[in-house]
Every structure is written in structure tokens, then in C-alpha cells.
Design a protein around this nucleic acid. Structure first.
Length: 552
RNA sequence: GGCUCGUUGGUGAAAUGGUUAACACAUUGCCCUCUCAAGGCAACAUUCACGGGUUCAAAUCCCGUACGAGUCACCA
């Protein structure tokens, strides 16, 4: 019996050779330097900020080099698949405009290097495993879970390296006949890679972010095919897929670093060229005094749901992610304020080699800047779209009062130094509810500052609205009139003088205008009062004075 | 325990052997100002985890220690 006979026994229906697949998926015809990258999540959990970073980097790498960005669904762990996870990945990619060039989803296939779903590639993997068995580099292993546990326990106790290697690789040298007999007998088995490495020998691996790293050779006979569903393990699928899909750069989390010796040997066993690797550092989170890996359970901001629900503009999130990935991104951004993010010359070398804390304050800052630069109309559109999905009440109001809302959002906007008061769409309504008459049914909390006397407040506001305010006044006239009344009623419009002689006056122009501001909005902090009055108009303002009289 | 990576301010970090350790966010103060937001100015690491060495010179190179992280599944 030969290796080939055993391979045929295990995979009787596999007829294609690995050369056939080489021809089926030829080298991609791309321009010099074009990068072929992939985003390859497994649908075993919802997409989180770490996945996002990987997706963004991939996208930038591909776009910037006129390469290819494809999506591969790594669904070999059928048992842990989470319902909706795959849909969510597609949703997020779409929401953040990180659309892959090649993918497979809901029966739709784009690209010539598919299938892009691992469970649909099982024949391909089997052909490659068959090849390995034929050349004597893989073998069936009949170790039971109990036996594996025993080995592990023994190794742990006696402080030996853990794994199936050397004399622990019991079935490595089983005769082909015996192996065949066991298989025909229906015994369960996995296929293990037959390592030829020597743990005491080192090799140099060059990672694009970490640089040159010396590592011991792999000598562990790792499973490459599982026993139940005959699907490959991650390690094997990675080799086959990224070779056949002609991936040039693999962007993945740092947790894969330690598998490099294995992957290195696997590529070598097939004589395949290894892609280049960019191992990204973990995203960490400060929890009290300790810093730990960001957790999907404890940290709402870990999951990509968070940013969308809060209403952060998608570009702000991408910028925040890139700021963590490459700290010189910020500088680039300030110099290239209108350029698309994927023109940023991302450098794997400049990636932080230790984990980074994802800073929500920083995100807020980036986001405020983004929102401040949007036109009022665009902001309104985004706000409306967000509200439709996440805040029905707000949606109804801003939809009904479209003009007022746009005008309000436009206050001190579309200028060189626009207001920066919203970090996300969900924070707008709390700062603008008073513009909507319907909202005045709520419990009102008037935030008066220095002047709290009801009579005085009524006097000021009533006099001002009835005898001074005019909707057609320019801002300059408007303010002059306010100053005039202010002085007439015993306040001063001269702040300097007030500071010198505060006792001479009932208050200053700030106190005076605050009274009117609060009557009209209940808030002592609002955007430019003139603009608010212009939107409200005299009639509505008088109504608010009536409300004040009743409810203060 | 083995293997690997890392450690600069509250946070992200720059500096890759050579004057006072960039910059951004956050915080604080002042200025401007009808409030707020913004903007302007300023403060914030006598010091780069610790110890030793190399050098005229070290955050930067070497060695050791401590601490942290990742990984060691028929999970990815």
C-alpha cells in the first residue's frame, strides 16, 4: 500500500489535483504593486472595533494601490455560528462604505476567485489535503479526546511543551495498512500535518509591522481537517485560500502571531510563496486601574452597534480608527481635510506595536469637527436618516419641521469657524428640543442665572417683545435695540464698566439677554439668540412668554 | 511553565546617538464674548518601567530584572 492508496481511500471522490486549482485560479493580472487583501471574519460573533480596524486597513491598502479587497466568510466552525453575525458584517461594511470588490452573499457572487465561503470550498481543501497525504506530509490520527487530555495533562504536569509532536504523535508512524483498516472500520480521525520542523532551530520571519522576529520552527502535528464535518481548521484554510485567492497581504490580529511557525511550514510544504503579514495590535480598554483587551461583553463601545446607534458619522469613526492605527494620520488629516481617507499613505511600520486604548473622547472630538463642517442640509439629511432608525419621536418632529430644523442647525454654521457642539446625531435633540412647540408640554426647568424674579423677568421680556423686537431687524439693529432697553431698565450694556462698578446697575447685558433667552428656550446655553428669534418669530415668542407666566 | 511581543504624560503618541522630550485629545487658567460653542494664549513628563554597561554624548545601542500582553483546541 502506498500513500496514494491511503489518500484515495480517504478522498475517493476527489479527482482534481492542486495543479488543476492553480490553473483555475491563475495569478491576478494587476498592476505592479497592487495589493490583494481580504477581510476574513468568522460569523461567530458580532463585528467589533478590532474587526473594524482590520477592515479599514485592508480597504486603504487595496484602494491606495489599485488592488483588490475581498471578503471571505470563514464559517468552518459551524457549531459556534451566531445568527445574524454575517448579515451584520455586511451591514457594517456597507454602512462604512467599505464595500469589498469580491464577495459572496445571499446567493450573489462577485469575483472569479470564489467560492468566498469556506464551507463551500470543502472539495478544494480535500484536494490539497489529499496531495499532502500522497506526498507523506499528512496522516490520519485516531487519538480520542480522552487520550488528548491525558497527553496534555501529562505535559502540563511534567512541564513539557504542550502539543502533539515527537513521541506524542502516536499515529504518525502507523503503517498505511493499519491506518486504512481503522478507517474502513469506521474509527474517527482527524488529519494531521506531518511536521518536519525542529523546535531547536530558529528562523527569521519578517512581519510588516513588528519587523524581523526570530522564532523556533514548528514541530507540532497540527490538525488540518476536523473529524466530524471534514472541514479544514483555520490554519489549513488560510494557506489554501490565501494562496488560491492570490492574497498579497494578510492583515490580522496580533493573536495570530504565534501561529506563524506553523503557517510558515505549511506554505513551505506546498512550495507556496507566503503572503506578507500585517499583525495589528489589540485594542485595549482601561478598566479602573487595569488595562485589558476590549471586551464585547463589558464595553458597549467594543461592538460596532454602538457607533451607529449613537449616530456618529461613519467617516468620523473611520478617522478615529485610523488615528489609532497610524498616529501620523491626524497630521495628514489636518493637511488634507477634504481628501478621502483611503488616500492616506498607511504604513504598517508606524503601527503601534503595543495595544492602543480606544479613546472615546478623541472620537467625540473628531466627530464634532466632521459634523461642524457639514452643510446644514446635509446634516439634516443624516440626522433624519439616523432618527428614522433609532429615534422615532425625533424623526416625526424634525420631519414635520424641516425648515425650522435646518435653519436651527445652520446657526453659526457654514463659516470659517463653525460651531462644534454635536459629537453625534443622538446628541442634537437634547440641545434643540425647545425649537419644537410640541415639546413644551414636558416638565419645564427654567435655567435662570442672576435674575430669577418672576415680575422682573416678565417685565423685561414683555417690554422687549412687544415694544422693541421686530422680525425684520438685522442682527445689528436687533442688538442695538436690546442694548437700548437694557440701559433703560437699569442694566448696562457696557461689560467693562459693569466690572468696575457692579453696584451701580441691576445687572449687565448678559444678565438681561439671559432672561429673554431662558424664557424662550428654558436654557441658559443656546446658539446665537438672534438666529433663534428669527426662526421662532414674534408670535411664537409671545406664546412662550405666556407659558412662562403660567408655569414658572 | 514554553514561545513571542511590548513598557515615553490622564489618553493616542513623535523623536531611531547630540541643544529646553513634537503634536493631538482631555483637564485647568486667562483673553475674547449677550449665554453657550468656537477661537486665541498659557499651564500640565527636571524625564522616557527599574538596575547596570558601551559612548565625549542614550528615551534611543547591549545585558539583566520587574511588570504587562498574546498564544500554547478537531475556535477562529
Amino acid at each position: 500500500m502506498t500513500n496514494k492508496d491511503l489518500a484515495d481511500l480517504i478522498f475517493p471522490n476527489i479527482t482534481k489535483s492542486i495543479e488543476d486549482y492553480e490553473n483555475l485560479y491563475p495569478k491576478r493580472n494587476l498592476e505592479e504593486g497592487a495589493k490583494v487583501v481580504r477581510f476574513a471574519p468568522s460569523p461567530t460573533g458580532f463585528m467589533h472595533i478590532g474587526n473594524m480596524m482590520s477592515a479599514v486597513i485592508n480597504y486603504v491598502l487595496a484602494k491606495k494601490s489599485n488592488g483588490v479587497f475581498f471578503l471571505r466568510n470563514e464559517d468552518t466552525d459551524q457549531a459556534r455560528t451566531v445568527e445574524g453575525a454575517l448579515e451584520f458584517i455586511h451591514h457594517i461594511l456597507n454602512h462604512y462604505h467599505l464595500n469589498p470588490d469580491e464577495y459572496e452573499f445571499n446567493g450573489e457572487i462577485k469575483g472569479n476567485y470564489g467560492p468566498y465561503v469556506q464551507s463551500e470550498r470543502i472539495e478544494i481543501y480535500h484536494a490539497f489535503i489529499k496531495h499532502l497525504i500522497t506526498i507523506g506530509r499528512a496522516y490520519p490520527c485516531f487519538l480520542t479526546p480522552d487520550e488528548l487530555n491525558e497527553i496534555r495533562e501529562y505535559q502540563t504536569k511534567s512541564k513539557k511543551r504542550i502539543g502533539i509532536y515527537g513521541r506524542y504523535a502516536k499515529y504518525r508512524y502507523l503503517s498505511l495498512e493499519e491506518a486504512a483498516a481503522k478507517i474502513q472500520n469506521g474509527e474517527k480521525y482527524v488529519i494531521r500535518f506531518k511536521s518536519e520542523g525542529d523546535f531547536n532551530k530558529k528562523f527569521i520571519f519578517e512581519d510588516l509591522t513588528k519587523g524581523k522576529i526570530e522564532m523556533p520552527e514548528n514541530d507540532i502535528d497540527v490538525p488540518i481537517m476536523k473529524s466530524e464535518n471534514k472541514l479544514p481548521t483555520y490554519h489549513f484554510a488560510h494557506i489554501v485560500d490565501d494562496h488560491l485567492m492570490r492574497t498579497t497581504h494578510v492583515v490580522r490580529g496580533e493573536e495570530w502571531m504565534s501561529s506563524i511557525p506553523l503557517h510558515y511550514e505549511l506554505f513551505k510544504a506546498f512550495n507556496f510563496k507566503m503572503p506578507k503579514y500585517i499583525h495589528t495590535s489589540l485594542i485595549l480598554k482601561k478598566d479602573g486601574d487595569t488595562i485589558r483587551k476590549i471586551s464585547k461583553r463589558k464595553d458597549p463601545e467594543a461592538l460596532m452597534f454602538y457607533y451607529e446607534e449613537k449616530g456618529y458619522p461613519y467617516l468620523a469613526v473611520i478617522d478615529a480608527v485610523l488615528t489609532i492605527a497610524n498616529s501620523n494620520f491626524e497630521e495628514w488629516r489636518t493637511n488634507n481635510i477634504d481628501k478621502p481617507f483611503y488616500e492616506f499613505p498607511f504604513s504598517p511600520k508606524k503601527m503601534s506595536s503595543s495595544g492602543a486604548l480606544f479613546d472615546l473622547d478623541k472620537l467625540d472630538n473628531i466627530s464634532k469637527n466632521y459634523i461642524s463642517r457639514m452643510s446644514a442640509k446635509d446634516l439634516y439629511q443624516e440626522y433624519l436618516t439616523w432618527a428614522k432608525k433609532y429615534d422615532e419621536h425625533t424623526y416625526e418632529l424634525i420631519n414635520k419641521y424641516k425648515e425650522d430644523t435646518i435653519n436651527f442647525l445652520n446657526i453659526e454654521r457654514e463659516s470659517q469657524k463653525p460651531r462644534k457642539d454635536y459629537e453625534n446625531y443622538s446628541s442634537i435633540f437634547n440641545k434643540s428640543w425647545y425649537m419644537y412647540d410640541e415639546e413644551w408640554n414636558r416638565d419645564l426647568v427654567y435655567e435662570f442665572k442672576n435674575i430669577k424674579d418672576k415680575e422682573e423677568i416678565i417685565n423685561i421680556t414683555s417690554e422687549y417683545l412687544n415694544n422693541y423686537y421686530d422680525d425684520s431687524d438685522s442682527e445689528e439693529i436687533w442688538f442695538n435695540k436690546m442694548k437700548e432697553l437694557c440701559t433703560k431698565m437699569g442694566y448696562t450694556s457696557n461689560m467693562k464698566e459693569y466690572k468696575e462698578n457692579p453696584d451701580k446697575y441691576k445687572g449687565n447685558i448678559a444678565d438681561f439677554s439671559t432672561v429673554i433667552r431662558v424664557v424662550l428656550t428654558t436654557s441658559s446655553m443656546t446658539p446665537n439668540l438672534y438666529d433663534i428669534m428669527q426662526i421662532l418669530g414674534k408670535e411664537r415668542m409671545l406664546k412662550r412668554l405666556e407659558i412662562f407666566k403660567e408655569r414658572y
